[in-house]
Design a protein around this nucleic acid. Structure first.
Lengths: 152, 152
DNA sequence: TTGACTTTGACTAAGTTTGACCAATGCGGT
DNA sequence: ACCGCATTGGTCAAACTTAGTCAAAGTCAA
């Protein structure tokens, strides 16, 4: 198993255990416990706990420093689809697209089959006929079209 | 026996053994084991494990990377999706795509929201960045990927 | 002989791990 | 207050580990 997956799993587990869905950790401590360099923790935080994936991370340095990871709640009221459509620019890579859809699924905003359809449409597998340079543009465009279709 | 057939047989065998109809492999490892260049694996995947043939391929690069091949085939008779995937060729115009999806919806094989998503993904609206000559190919590819993802 | 299919390898892209160096915070001592 | 330093976390780029792409060259049957 990948080291970064272990770290992610550990943090997720911390979040489960704490009743409030929030994990607070000390970078150096956790690194030592899991046998990795401290900066690996940062890597995991940016690659697996990004806002795109529905998390916010706060931290403080110095004595008594900490890192806190929280699962973000959606603003009720505004359509989350609209929010994403506005946030996505004119280019979107496969990993980000996947993160966005998986988050929508996790939040139960879309059904599993809707998520599967969108993941399939956004994966590079479908873009054989499209030049590599244009794939991310196409992906952004497709995501926006699909989400917009869900608003009405 | 052709090299590519050996590779295909090997992957098929992995899938049998696994029980869940899923094979996970490491490209370089497999290539070494079978004495071929790594890119030959990709050739086999595209030529023998396409959606038409009832497979979904996922992969990941980097440390701990993998290629996963999943069988979704249930028989084209059993799955209306598979039937369409086989019938659609390598090119599909917007009107035909729309007709196919609307028929699936009419037959209540897919939900209204699934249909909406697919219609959005197959409409020309999303293909601004794709040359006109390639749109129909992309559309065919997208439809096949999406429907294949819905099987099982 | 031609055209579809196969094989190969050089080049590219993505994801992970590590470590050297940087920045912020708080606490004591003056 | 101020300074200095211990204690934390942050950044960044190099090295590494995989997989993907593309086009040239080879094979083989119609």
């Amino acid at each position: 198993m990948r080291l970064s997956d272990e770290i992610a799993a550990y943090i997720l587990h911390m979040m489960e255990s704490a009743g409030d869905g929030e994990a607070e950790l000390k970078r150096n401590e956790l690194a030592e416990e899991l046998g990795c360099v401290p900066s690996q923790i940062n890597y995991v935080l940016t690659s697996r706990f990004s806002p795109e994936q529905g998390y916010i991370v706060e931290s403080r340095r110095g004595g008594g420093g900490y890192i806190r990871v929280r699962r973000v709640k959606l603003d009720s009221g505004v359509s989350p689809f609209m929010h994403i459509v506005n946030a996505v620019g004119y280019s979107l890579n496969a990993a980000s697209a996947q993160a966005i859809i998986e988050n929508l699924l996790y939040q139960q905003i879309v059904s599993p089959s809707s998520a599967r359809i969108m993941l399939a449409a956004l994966s590079d597998q479908a873009y054989r006929d499209v030049s590599v340079e244009q794939r991310d543009k196409l992906r952004a465009s497709l995501l926006k079209q699909m989400l917009t279709a869900l608003i009405t």
